[in-house]
Structures are given as structure tokens and as C-alpha cells.
Nucleic acid binder design. Sequence first.
RNA 1: GCGCGGUUAGCUCAGUUGGUAGAGCGACUCAUUUACACUGAGAAGGUCGGGGGUUCAAGUCCCUCACCGCGCACCA
Length: 699
Amino acid sequence: MEEKLLKPYNPKETEERIYKLWEDSGFFNPDNLPDERHKSFTIVMPPPNANGDLHAGHTLFITLEDIMIRYKRMAGFKTLWLPGADHAGFETQVVYEKKLEKEGRSRFGMDPNDLYKEILDFTLLNKKNMETQVRSLGASCDWSREKFTLDPDVVEKTQDTFVKMYNDKIIYRGKRAINWCYKHQTSLSEVETESSEELSPLFYLKYGPFSIATVRPETKFGDKYVVMHPDDKRYAEYKHGQKIKLEWINGPIEATIIKDEAIDMEFGTGVMTITPWHSQIDFEIAKRHDLDTEQIIDWRGKLLGIANEFAGMNIKDARAKIVEKLKAKGLLIKIDEKYQNVIKKCYKCGTVIEPQIKDQWFVKMAPLTKLALNSVNRGEIKFIPDNYEKIFRYWMENSIDWNISRQIVWGIPIPAWFKGEEFKVSKEKPNGEGWTKDPDTFDTWFSSGQWPLMTTGFPKHEDFKKYYPTDVMETGHDLIFKWVPRMVIFGLYLAQKAPFHTVYLHGLVNDAQGKKMSKSKGNVINPLTLTDKYGTDALRMALIVGNTPGTDLALQENKVKGYKHFANKIWNITRFVLDNTKDVEPANASALIDECNKTIKDVTEDMENFRFYLASEKLYHYLWHRYADEIIEESKKNEEVKKSLFYILENSLKLLHPFMPFITEEIWSILPARKNLLMVEKWPLAKLGASDQKKNDNK
RNA sequence: GCGCGGUUAGCUCAGUUGGUAGAGCGACUCAUUUACACUGAGAAGGUCGGGGGUUCAAGUCCCUCACCGCGCACCA
């Protein structure tokens, strides 16, 4: 009897040592795996943001992916789990700016190179920290292949893709209304904004003979076009292009009548004026009719010269004053106080997004989303749970062109050069004088969208040939728009193959009451506190049992505690079995062994179908309430039963290993005559019992 | 507004192709040093959100309503 078995199971004494054993074995790397393995199984790890500690969500995804990988490794596959770290462009810049703020500093006015250097140091430190934490969770990933999203080859290839897409006319530079965040001083893509419904006053203003409605009177200074639907009989007397004179906020102006079908005749009076610089729809109208456009609000949220006496005023403060003036001039008809409208905000700071017209780099989405849609139609990508296919399709059918340039330093530089109005796309500086580099960086999803390609070494590396397309993409359901479609698109566009055949989406990890964790609510559960208290295996089980894909999970500490007890139970089972079977001749067949084989079969089927929430629960129940409570108890009275005990223990450890790798490996190491690490033992074959065999023969 | 998901025991949730309701935790009764008190045995607890339909049979399929959560939304 091993000394250590006498004490209760102590995860702290075990985990670090066992992880080292695994890592030193080299088996995380598929090239080193024993036996001939022909089929590969690959998962590219969603690279955690290297800007802070791992949270409960990371723990869940690492556990899920580790389960898949460990299962497939034991099942004889050449398994590659490819880890990474994400510089997380805007996200990290925001984290760092908060840090600067706390220190009484600001990124504005800093030398961009200094800022970059500081954020790089910060990120590399966090990256190291993050890697340690991933290890502590038992992740059996191949660290020798780890990628960072700012590795030189990733930067280079991202830029190559950009150049290629520009040459293929899928990327263009142009003026469009972009989402501008005043706080962060950058444009944002659609997925980086949040819309919320709010009640705002709707002002009805007298515009010459018309009544127009607006929630934003502070943008109306330059409105000199009045638009109505061509079929609107109420305004048949006004002709397209007709000029009318009227009194406006800052004096008399000449306005032009525009007829355009974008106008909803049912809404309000059916007449509106347009502010093309600060509204996409107005910009489209202006473009269609070749109208003038003028900026009203500057990049800091202050009114420009056109606002006369209001110039320089912050738009927040200006509104009330402008309304006052409109009222004094008799231009305010009425106010609808409770108008419900949609406000777009920066998803990081909540600042109201200002549409601004800006020259930016855009990806034409239509040809790309078509590739992705066709691939899904051909059945090349399976979603778990399957209702996400519908959500994926919706996005594919409705996406608008993607703004990929950000006005932040923390990211991959866009390989473009400017000279006056001229621009050139190239990694190298063009010949001739006066070229300056585009100061913008890529939207982080532009590079991470190519992650399965980058990590496998597209296009030439041996790994790309061996492991691409990968097998499973396992990630949070919140990334169904942000990340998943972009990977599919880039995979199809660059490599003509979808990057994975299965997308497994897990839910969010919430607090014990099922409420979303957030720092402001103070309900954040640090997974490392839990692993420290109960052991990693216990936390892994608590995250997996009963947690169906796509569904959010309420993380209860008691549940984790319960699985710590389970770990100890397995410990004691081992102790009993080793003590009581020393002189027992093991049986080759018995009803109990048949029953065990039935469990092997069930669990294997669940593993094959990604039903980890069921497999884990079955194992828990079988080991504790069948094996320990009944079979072992029976063995105390019945010598015959003892002959089957070892078979069950051995196979149960194998089945349980993907879920609770540390304790199972630890026990495996003290079983008599063990040579291999459990992590590379063969997954048990479900030998069919006599009754099952008969059924099969009849087929 | 459109879409998706949910509503099952006190709490958190399972229930895989329709076949007499399950787990964990909690609460209750008992056992008292056992491989294991990080234990064991037992019992309690649900008209599966409401209504309608299909079926021999519905928590499960269809329709409908209500409530909760989430996502998407350029009608000024």
C-alpha cells in the first residue's frame, strides 16, 4: 500500500507535479505520441486576451477542449491542441488606458512608440501569467506550437492578406459613416457597439413650410436639404431640386427639395432634413443625389464653426441651449417627450457613438459571406447546439461592410502609405518622396479571424498540410458574430476550406444565482480561488456536469465542493480495492464486468456526440452510487465480487481521465505494474456483453 | 420591431429517437468510526408556466398566450 493513499486526496500536492510529468513526457506534442497514429484531431485554442487573469469562462473552455483532446488522444488520434495568446487590440488598449488614467496619465499626447512599448511590456507580462494559469487547469496543449497574435509571422501574414484582399478588390478605402467613440478616439465596427432603447424627447421644428422631427437638434445647423418621398401626394407641389428660402437656427438659408424613396411616408410628417456627415442613411441620400456634406461636430464632440455662437460647445451642453433659441425664434412646434429611439454606444465605455464620415479601410462583406453561406449549405460546418446555425445564417445574410481600421496604436499596422490625396497599399514604403505610413492598426478580429490559418502555418508549413482544416472550434456563444464567421470567411477565402467542421459553443458562466458576473456588481468568482480550495478536478467537474452546450451555467461553490468529495471518494475506492484484491485472481468475465462495459459503451457514445454533461454525470453516478455503494459493499460479503473490482477501477479511471485528469493520473501511477502515463493509455473498447452480442448477430 | 433561448423538486439544472418524472445541493429521520464523516441507509418533496391539439401514449411533437433572459435593429 502506497503511503500517500492513507491520507485524504490532496490536490495541491498532486497537480503541479502531475502537470510537469505530462509536460516532460512530450505527449502534448502530437509528433511525440506513441504508436502509429494516422488520423489527426485538432483544436485551435481561442487565444485568451493577455491583459489580465483568467476568469471562469476561460476555465470552462479550457476544460471542454481538454476533455475533447484527452479523449481523442486516448482513442488513438494524433491530437493537436494549439494554444495561443491574444494581444486583443482595442480591448487591451482600453484596459491599459484605464491603468494610465489611474496613474493620472493619458495616452493622448504620448509618443505612439512609447505607448506601444508600454502596452507590449504589460501584455507580455500578462501573457506569461495567463500561460501559468492555463497550465494549472490541466490543459494538455502543445506549448511548443504556441502562437501570439503579434508574432512577426502573424503580423506579416495579416498584412499579406490585406494586400491580397485589396488587390482582389475586396478591400477598399472610402468615406462612409463610421462609428466614432469620442472617449477612445477611434472608429469601431458594428460588433463593437451596443444598441439600447431609450426614451428621448423628439423635437418638431418648423423648417420653412414644413414640419420636421429630430432627436438631435444640435446637428441641424447645416441642414439645407429637405427630403420627401416622390410618391407623397401631400408634397406633390414641391419639385425635386426646387429651392426654397426659410429662416433657420442661425438666420435665413436657401434649402433644396430632394425626393428620395428612402423616406417613410408614414413616419411623422413624411418630411425630413438631412445631416449627411452624422448619419449613414442621410449620407446615402446625399451620395445618391450628389449633395454637399459638411461636418458639424468635431472629433472631440464639439460643435464646429458652422454652429456660430454655439461653436466650440460640447454637444451634450449645446442641445438645451439650441432648443431654447429655436423656441425663441418660433421654430419649435412641439416636443414629444417620450419618444423611444435606439442609441448606439461604445461597448467598452458606454459613450454614445457618433456617426462620422471618415476615410477608412472597409472589407466588402457580400462576396465573403456568400462563401460562408454556401459552405454551411453544403453541410461543411456543424453547429452545437444546432440552433446557432440559424443565428450564423442571419448574420451572413445581413452583414454590412466591415470597417477594419482603428485609430489606436495597439495592433497590427495597416500596410498602407499616404501622400496628400494619394494612397498606396504595400508593406514596403513606395518609391519617391513624401510618403507617410498609415498610422492606423487593424481591428483585432481581422487578424484573429485568420487564427486557424496562422497557427497551422498557412500556406506552406508542414502543420498546415497535416492539421488544416482543424476539427472543432470550441468557443463562447457570444463569439458567434464576432469571431466564428470571420474565421469561416478567411478560411474559405484564403485556403478554400472552412477552418473546422464542428463549432461547439458553450454558454456563459454566471454567478450562483445565474446572474452575469461583473466587477461592478462584485459577484465575480475567481476560478483560481476555487481550484485552490477544492482542486482543479473538482472545478472541472462542476463546470461540466449538467452543463449543456449553448446554455449559461450558474456556478455554485457547493457544487465544486461536491466534486472535491467525489475526488476523495475515488481515492478511497482505490485504497479499498488495492487492499482487498492483492491475492484475488481477477475475472475475465462476469455480470459486473458486462455492466461496466455497458457504461464504457454509453460514455463513449456520449463522448463521440459531445455530450460531456451526460458522460460526466454517468461516471459520477456509476462510480459512487453503483461501484462504491453497492458493488464494493457486496464484495465485503461475497468473495466472487472481488474478482471484478480491479477491472472496473482500471476502466473507470480511463473513462474519467478526460474530466478529472490529475487525480486519475495520480492513482494510475500507483496501480501495480503501470508503465504508461494514463493520458496515453488506450481508451477502453466497449466489449459487448452476451445479450448485446446476440442483438448484433441478428442484424 | 425581428430573431433565439428558457419556464421541470426549496435552489441550480439534466431529461439524447414520444413509452409509468431525475441529479447535485439544501431541508428531514436514522446509523456512529467504517476503504471513505470529504461517510452510509432511508424517507419527504413536482397537476413538468397557462390553454388547446396530434397520438394507444406528450416534460418531449404542433398551435396559442403569458412571463424571464439574450441577441439583432441607420423611421428622421
